[in-house]
């Protein structure tokens, strides 16, 4: 194959100005970011932190597997699941009434005249704002607050999940009510059914599979969240893990990390199975 000598002008990069500008912009933006985040990988390789890491990692093996400790881990794991289950149940109890008020489909004034009355609109807006408030504070912050208010233990975790997930479920339930088939509901309302009747006979049967599917998915998330919340003292596996980390007991940490990964995996599988079975 003969090579053709290209004229020198085509070898020049036509976009070099842009490239140089973007490179400079990236460096100018990255420097303050790195400075703010105290970005200094050298600390990871300093003698002090290397020896601390090595000592901690050395304690990871062998993982602690004696019967007494495994029993403790089993109880903590079950408590994590229990916190998630009770928390999610309370969240549903919070979310359902909120979603019933917030959705637009069950508005009789909107149905009758095409426009919602001012008071009804205000009620819906205030419920929506309340749900935003509940879910915009992360569950771990709720847990921190309630650990201060009601003390260390499972209760703070249950309340934290109930509040955050109450706000999330309320929002999603409202959207599910509004996005599903509404003809049945509207027909019932148009023929003089009450809001309760229209809900139970028109709206709920249509939306139930989607509602259950999303709730089960949230239960799965709650299991992960309740482990994390344990780190601020809200009970379960996370609290045990935090204690072991504080004591630099690597063998215990490794066992619990493995149990945690397995728990997430099992919850994922159970949630997938339940959603497929019920939907």
């Amino acid at each position: 194959m003969a090579t053709v000598a290209l004229p020198a002008t085509t070898m020049r990069d036509p976009a070099w100005r842009e490239r140089v500008l973007w490179t400079i912009a990236a460096v100018v933006l990255l420097l303050p970011l790195g400075w703010l985040a105290e970005f200094n990988p050298a600390t990871l390789w300093s003698a002090a932190s290397l020896s601390a890491t090595r000592q901690f990692l050395a304690t990871f093996f062998p993982p602690k597997l004696d019967a007494e400790f495994l029993q403790l881990v089993a109880i903590a794991t079950w408590k994590t699941v229990a916190i998630a289950t009770v928390g999610t149940t309370l969240a549903v109890l919070i979310a359902v009434p909120l979603a019933l008020v917030a959705n637009r489909q069950l508005s009789i004034s909107a149905f009758a005249s095409g426009r919602m009355c001012a008071l009804c609109m205000a009620a819906r807006a205030s419920v929506r704002t309340f749900m935003i408030l509940l879910r915009s504070i992360p569950e771990i912050v709720w847990a921190l607050l309630f650990v201060r208010a009601v003390g260390l233990g499972d209760t703070a975790g249950v309340i934290a999940i109930a509040l955050t997930y109450g706000g999330m479920l309320g929002k999603v339930y409202t959207e599910i009510f509004e996005s599903n088939e509404t003809q049945g509901t509207r027909a019932l309302l148009g023929n003089g059914a009450s809001r309760t009747q229209a809900f139970f006979y028109g709206m709920l049967p249509v939306c139930l599979p989607e509602l259950m599917s999303y709730t089960i998915y949230r239960w799965e998330c709650a299991i992960r969240a309740s482990v994390v919340m344990g780190f601020v003292g809200a009970g379960g596996l996370g609290q045990q893990m935090e204690l072991s980390m504080k004591m630099l007991a690597g063998g215990e940490v490794l066992t619990m990390l493995a149990v945690f990964v397995a728990l997430v995996w099992v919850a994922d599988a159970v949630s997938w199975f339940l959603r497929r079975w019920l939907a």
Binding site: A37, T43, V228, L257, V261
Partner: peptide
Amino acid sequence: NVLRAIPELVWASLVVIAAGLGPFAGTV
């Protein structure tokens, strides 16, 4: 899968041991 299975906060409490307290540990 292993990286993803462990939540950020659990990673943070592990990294804090190696990188010390502060935003760098959070970044890692």
